[in-house]
Write a protein that binds this DNA or RNA. Structure first.
Lengths: 343, 343
DNA sequence: TTAAATAATGCAATCGATTGCGTTAACAAT
DNA sequence: ATTGTTAACGCAATCGATTGCATTATTTAA
């Protein structure tokens, strides 16, 4: 029924040479004469031979596979990161096994185990773990398999390899921009502040308030899932506030645009009554009415840098105990949802 | 330097049993007594043993890996499909190697080869090939490895396993909806019509025209890359037309929204002067001003159905020579960019 | 108590490619 | 002609888990 696998032994038998010779010929080992190499190449093609990467990886303990774990892959930001990763990996002769954790620490751990079992050469994680030190990567560290965190990094990030932006600084800029226009009641709608990125954004928000001598009110910080649904719920809740906030800093664009849309439906003028700032620079944030002020977050670059860092670790026999941090540049894009002339 | 791998032999040695016993114990083979099984389990945990999936796959020729090839992974639609795939695969004990072809047939072929080398159990492809029969999957067919095409399927699709929507019908409905409001100059902006999905959308467009007794004008069909940039270029070009078209059917939302945005900037009223219909139902198509009429395209479902079909083929020793086609339901979402009361 | 049946475990080959080391062949040097 | 060098290739072990077919230990039946 199933066709037999075609192996180097088959080629060897067909040409009356040893499997060793075939193996060497196929990878251009210098000890094989041009003539036999040619013959073998030809025969391999003719027989439809395809190398068995599993066998090769088992023997050499090198899989040319990188594992990726993300909370979910279908956000504009994350899929952009992954696209960058795939491109960079592919260019370097690697490929990706991508898994989703769905914000579950248990699933993240299971994923890590599976990737370990498959002997990935390296692991890239946007962690969903809120514990200071994610324990489930121990086996990787023990075997010296490089692990790089990106975007969502662990609390004690300076011990690990990380690629991120300065979320605190970005949030600080966004909030300050709102305060600069004289707004005083700035609502912050964010995600789980156990997660590093949201924690830092919150810190930036607080810092900007304090610097402007505005009191911090924890009632003005809402932790949500930042989804479209959360946006709808938040919008409703905002409508019940009195006084209304006069500005909102939302921790992602999806949620920001949803909120903006629903507030407008309720007759609220953006930015006149309420200014809104998002985060991520999703493609359509530019095309909403009004266009959304947001933080431009370099997804593709993050993916590429993450892969490059891991491949770098792979190629240099690194003995550095400490992790390396790469902090990418972001940009505050001031658009119509905050009515300020540029600077 | 590197810690030695911990294998079943190490566990066997530590407990004075054979590796065979350890292997069986770890997979709950009934022939192993509860007692030894317990001991082995415990020891494995204690020693930090992690199964080597490469060795296992080599021996059993079952990798529990599925390959995926897509043109690019960072569109809203595609990442949604992939998210569905990853979820479904993971639930079934499989995982995904995802690769991008970047619309290059050569890259697609290379990717297929690599996935074959890695002995994936099945392959899922959104093909970029415009040739009637994609030859680069031959090795898979020869070895009876299931291949399922989704979204972008080959020309002779009825010979293969496919999961799609009826693009012709969807385009027909979209175009007809425009014509129903009395529009006569309907521009169709689409992608490479060598690709099946765009070809079929074009056919649907033509069919609707012909049914309404409107002449088909090939100058009213523009093949573009459907990107944001293409949208900008198209918008400029539209502004030079006289008379202006009174309706546009764009083959994706990204491009549609860009065009709408730029036309509005030039003072054109949507939908009063020009109606616009998109395709895909990207998340923000609902939040644009005006909201965009579009075709709702079930991405996640497509991913899940594709994986399920492949796993189905994997589990049943299929001898069907012909492929199976799954056609998913789509929906025309009538919104503000076409000024028609529902129905 | 002993044969028969069943339960538990071990032996050794296998999956396919790789590679250190040893051989053989070919050619050059003396 | 003999030895020394290279060049070209083969042998066989190895990576780690699996599994058909023994073999041994334990029960059960008679």
């Amino acid at each position: 029924m199933y066709k037999k696998e075609i192996t180097i032994y088959d080629i060897a038998a067909a040409l009356n040479v040893s499997a060793a010779t075939v193996s060497r010929a196929l990878k251009d080992h210098p000890a094989i004469s041009k003539k036999t190499r040619g013959k073998i190449r030809e025969k391999a093609l003719e027989m439809g031979y395809q190398t068995n990467a599993l066998a090769s990886s088992l023997r050499t303990s090198k899989s040319y596979t990188l594992g990726v774990i993300v909370p979910r892959l279908n956000s504009n930001f994350m899929s952009t990161v992954l696209a960058g990763m795939e491109k960079a990996a592919s260019d370097a002769g690697y490929h990706l096994i991508i898994m989703q954790s769905f914000e579950s620490e248990i699933k993240e751990k299971e994923n890590a185990q599976l990737l370990f079992s498959h002997r990935v050469d390296g692991l890239m994680v946007s962690t969903t773990s809120t514990s200071p030190e994610p324990a489930h990567f121990k086996p990787f560290f023990a075997k010296n398999i490089p692990v790089v965190f990106f975007d969502r990094i662990p609390q004690k990030y300076n011990q690990y390899n990380c690629v991120t932006i300065d979320n605190r600084e970005a949030a600080w800029q966004a909030t300050r921009h709102l305060l600069d226009t004289g707004k005083t009641r700035v609502l912050h709608i964010t995600g789980n502040t156990g997660i590093q990125v949201y924690k830092q954004r919150l810190e930036g928000y607080k810092a900007a308030l304090s610097e402007a001598n505005k009191p911090f009110d924890h009632q003005m910080v809402w932790e949500t899932g930042l989804s479209v649904e959360d946006g709808e719920i938040s919008a409703k809740r905002i409508m019940t506030m009195k006084p209304l906030p006069d500005a909102i800093f939302v921790a992602n664009d999806t949620c920001a645009i949803t909120i903006m849309h629903h507030l407008q439906k309720n007759g609220i003028k953006i930015p006149e009554q309420i200014e809104i700032t998002g985060f991520n620079n999703d493609p359509f944030s530019e095309f909403s009415k009004p266009s959304l002020t947001t933080i431009n977050y370099p997804g593709e670059e993050m993916g590429i840098k993450t892969v490059n860092l891991i491949i770098d670790k792979l190629n240099t026999k690194h003995i550095e105990p400490k992790g390396k941090q790469i902090v990418l540049k972001f940009g505050l894009l001031i658009r119509e949802s905050t009515n300020q002339a540029a600077k």
